[in-house]
């Protein structure tokens, strides 16, 4: 039996709007197993990013529970949340969010600095991560010198360098052309297969969906459909 790394039960998320409240997510019950390559899909405003943020312990549920790596998000202190993200979760953002004053190497190295790994161990891990995404020759470049595709590959290396159990990718291909989007997705799929890292996407991009094994359709903050599919694109 596979290990469940995310368990969501009766999750509700509301945001204050003016004097009232807006329900972004309601009655969400999901679980994800190690090694999944899944996506939360749906139109804009359906609650995909909100759910991803809660799973990533950047936000907390209003009701219900979300347990990641055995830790209940709403029970975690700021420090424990940070620890969870640092040790177990990698993030990939739509606009890459690379730190502009650092080189490619330093951007990838960042998470390892927080883990207080030795300089030798950091260098080895960073170069390995850059090799995964084919950017080992661009280690000294600043993010401003990279193309969109290269920037997102650096973001993938940064998310993967610490070998997390879970990678959360929020619209990772939204700013990329089709060619780069496929290259990125193939890289992530490869890492998923080789390292057994769980990837969870938030997307409404058909190109991404073609790579996913499981699609969770969100509509108006509710799970409309949860389907296992055979990935159409494997390369």
């Amino acid at each position: 039996m596979s290990e469940k790394i995310i368990v969501i039960e009766n999750l509700v998320k509301r945001f204050p709007v003016g004097e009232g409240e807006f329900t972004a997510l309601s009655d969400i019950n999901l679980s994800f197993e190690k090694g999944e390559f899944s996506g939360i899909v749906g139109p804009s405003g359906s609650g995909k990013t909100t759910l991803l943020n809660i799973i990533g312990s950047l936000d907390s549920p209003t009701e219900g529970s979300c347990t990641v790596m055995g830790k209940r998000i709403s029970d975690l202190s700021h420090k424990q949340s940070a620890q969870l993200r640092n040790m177990h979760i990698g993030f990939i953002f739509q606009v890459y969010n690379l730190l502009p004053v650092y080189t490619v190497f330093e951007n990838v190295e960042f998470a390892l600095l927080l883990q207080k790994r030795s300089a030798t161990a950091r260098k080895k891990a960073v170069m390995e991560a850059l090799e995964w995404v084919g950017l080992e020759k661009m280690a000294d470049k600043k993010p401003s010198k990279l193309s969109g595709g290269e920037g997102q590959r650096v973001a993938i290396a940064r998310a993967m360098v610490k070998r997390p159990e879970l990678v959360l990718a929020d619209e990772p291909t939204a700013n990329l052309d089709a060619k780069n989007a496929h290259a990125i997705l193939q890289t992530m799929k490869k890492l998923n297969e080789e390292l057994k890292t769980t990837f969870l996407f938030s997307t409404h991009d058909e190109k991404v969906m073609a790579y996913l094994n499981r699609l969770i359709h969100l509509e108006d903050g509710k799970v409309a459909q949860d389907e296992w599919v055979t990935a159409k694109s494997t390369r």
Binding site: L58, A82, R85
Partner: peptide
């Protein structure tokens, strides 16, 4: 980003 990467 700092916070997402694991900083408090």
């Amino acid at each position: 980003t700092y916070i997402a990467l694991g900083m408090t």
